[in-house]
C-alpha cells in the first residue's frame, strides 16, 4: 500500500515557478505559526512561576523553568470545594471514555456488517434513520435523556454517561463501518457461507480482521468526541462523577483568590493530553483508514 511516487514528475522551470513556490512555503509557514503560537504560549506559561507571569509578557519565555504548576494542576488544584487537582476526574474520564469507545465501536461494527452483508428488507431505511441521528443537535435530547437516565436509575453516574455516549456514538460508528464494509467483496462472504460459517463466525473470523483500518479510525474519532465532550458531562454528572472537561472548567472558573494562569494552562494541557496521545500513536493508521479503498492495494 505504498503511495505512488510523484516526485519524479517533470515540472516547468523558470523564475515565476520559483517565486510561486516561495510564496507557497511562506503561506504554509504563516499558517503553522498561527496554529502553534497558542500551544507555545500555553506550554511556556505553564512552566513559569506566578511572579514571572505578573512581570513578563505573554510571549516571553520562562526564565526559570518550574513544574510546580503541573504538579498543582494534577494533585492539588481546587475543583469547586474539593482540592485534589484533576487526578480523580481524569480517572472518571478514562472510566467513561474507554468503555464508551469500545462499546460504540463494537456495536457500530456489527451494525455496519449487518446492514451491508446480511441485507434484510428495510435495511436502507434503518440506515437512513441511524444517519439522521448523526445530525441531531445534542441540546435537543438533553431533557428526554435526563428523564431516561432517571428512570434507569443511572442519573448522575459514570455508567449513565457511558450509555449516553454509546447511544449517540452509534450513528457515526455505524456510518464508518457501513462505508468500509460496502467495499468488502461479497464473494468472500459467499465463500465463507459455503465453507459453513454463520453470521458471527464470518464477522469475527473474516470480516473483523480485515477492518483494522476502520476500527482505528472509529476509535480515534469516538475517543476524541467522548473525551472532549462537555455538554453531556456537565448535564448528566454531578460533582465527583464529573469528567475532566467539566473539572477543568471548574478549575479555571474558580472565582476565589488569585488567578493562577500557570495552573490553568497546565490543567488544560493535561486534559487534552490523552487525545493528543491517541493521535500520535494511531495517527498513521488514521490517515491510512481515511484513504482505505481509494486505491486498490
Amino acid at each position: 500500500m505504498r503511495a505512488r511516487r510523484i516526485s519524479g514528475i517533470v515540472r516547468p522551470r523558470g523564475w515565476t515557478t520559483t517565486a510561486l513556490r516561495g510564496l507557497l512555503f511562506a503561506v504554509l509557514g504563516l499558517f503553522c505559526l498561527y496554529y502553534l503560537v497558542p500551544l507555545i504560549v500555553m506550554v511556556s506559561t505553564s512552566l513559569k512561576s506566578l511572579d514571572e507571569i505578573r512581570e513578563g509578557t505573554l510571549l516571553s519565555l520562562p526564565q526559570s523553568v518550574t513544574v510546580d504548576a503541573w504538579v498543582k494542576a494534577w494533585d492539588a488544584a481546587c475543583v469547586g470545594v474539593r482540592c485534589d487537582g484533576l487526578k480523580p476526574f481524569m480517572w472518571n474520564s478514562i472510566a467513561m471514555a474507554v468503555p464508551a469507545v469500545l462499546l460504540s465501536t463494537a456495536l457500530g461494527a456489527v451494525n455496519g456488517y449487518a446492514l451491508t452483508k446480511w441485507r434484510f428488507p428495510g435495511a436502507d431505511w434503518i440506515f437512513a434513520l441511524m444517519l439522521f441521528g448523526a445530525f441531531i443537535p445534542f441540546q435537543v435530547i438533553l431533557l428526554p435523556m435526563a428523564r431516561t437516565l432517571g428512570l434507569l436509575g443511572l442519573a448522575g453516574t459514570v455508567p449513565g454517561l457511558i450509555l449516553v455516549h454509546t447511544v449517540y456514538g452509534l450513528a457515526f460508528t455505524t456510518l464508518f463501518f457501513r462505508n468500509f464494509f460496502i467495499g468488502v467483496s461479497d464473494g468472500i462472504l459467499q465463500a465463507a457461507r459455503i465453507d459453513g460459517a454463520g453470521f458471527f463466525r464470518i464477522f469475527a473470523g473474516i470480516v473483523l480482521p480485515m477492518s483494522v483500518p476502520a476500527i482505528v479510525v472509529t476509535v480515534i474519532w469516538q475517543f476524541t468526541q467522548i473525551w472532549n465532550d462537555f455538554l453531556f458531562g456537565v448535564a448528566f454528572t454531578v460533582g465527583d462523577s464529573n469528567p475532566v472537561t467539566v473539572a477543568l472548567n471548574n478549575v479555571v472558573n474558580t472565582s476565589t483568590g488569585v488567578k493562577e494562569y500557570n495552573v490553568d494552562m497546565a490543567a488544560a494541557i493535561l486534559a487534552g493530553l490523552p487525545t493528543m496521545l491517541v493521535y500520535v500513536v494511531a495517527g498513521a493508521w488514521f490517515v491510512r483508514g481515511l484513504s482505505a479503498g481509494a486505491v486498490k492495494g
Binding site: 467483496s185 464473494g187 468472500i188 459467499q190 465463500a191 465463507a192 473474516i206 480482521p209 480485515m210
Partner: peptide
C-alpha cells in the same frame, strides 16, 4: 474473484 480470505 478467488474470494480468498485476505487476512488468513
Amino acid at each position: 474473484s478467488y474470494a480468498l480470505y485476505p487476512t488468513k
